[in-house]
């Protein structure tokens, strides 16, 4: 039995709740960033860049057996941690699942209000991009 999207999100929120201090939450994000698998250099193209972030974030995806798979990279490690956290949740889900999700768990982690305004935009842009990819691939 695969874990449901809800369960995965709940797990992420729980993981972050282990850290009381903001600094520790960031330390955790840095770890997630460092652990993100090698993203191929040749896919660091402008059309894969997510617009609206202070640092550069590339997002690549492919669809296989009706599910969307993401891979990503960034030149800033915290941003990389955030996108890593997002794709760990949404990679391998169906377009319908992603498109129908409210991404509310991000606020539960508290990331949204705690990131600087430009960064908050970056986060919003990442979420928008993932949503847009899902919407494009929903079977009508």
């Amino acid at each position: 039995m695969e874990t449901s999207l809800e369960e995965v999100k709940k797990q992420v929120v729980e993981d972050f709740s282990l850290y009381d201090e903001w600094l520790d939450k960031y330390e955790y994000l840095i770890e997630l960033g460092k652990a993100l698998e090698n993203y191929p250099e040749e896919k660091k193209t402008d059309d894969r860049l997510i617009k609206g972030c202070q640092s550069r974030v590339w997002l690549d995806y492919w669809v296989k057996d009706g599910r969307i798979w993401f891979s990503a990279d960034s030149d800033a490690i915290i941003t990389k941690g955030i996108i890593s956290m997002l794709i760990s949740v949404y990679s391998g889900r169906t377009p319908e699942e992603i498109a129908g999700d409210d991404f509310g768990f991000v606020e539960e982690i508290g990331l949204k209000e705690n990131l600087s305004p430009t960064r908050a935009n970056g986060l919003a842009s990442m979420i928008d991009k993932i949503k847009a990819v899902a919407a494009e691939n929903v079977q009508s």
Partner: peptide, 19 residues
């Protein structure tokens, strides 16, 4: 990355600019 430095400094109460 400059932005990472600024973000971590911010969490330690230090306001600097990056970018």
């Amino acid at each position: 990355h400059h932005e990472d430095i600024a973000l971590i400094l911010d969490k330690m109460g230090i306001a600097v600019r990056s970018g």
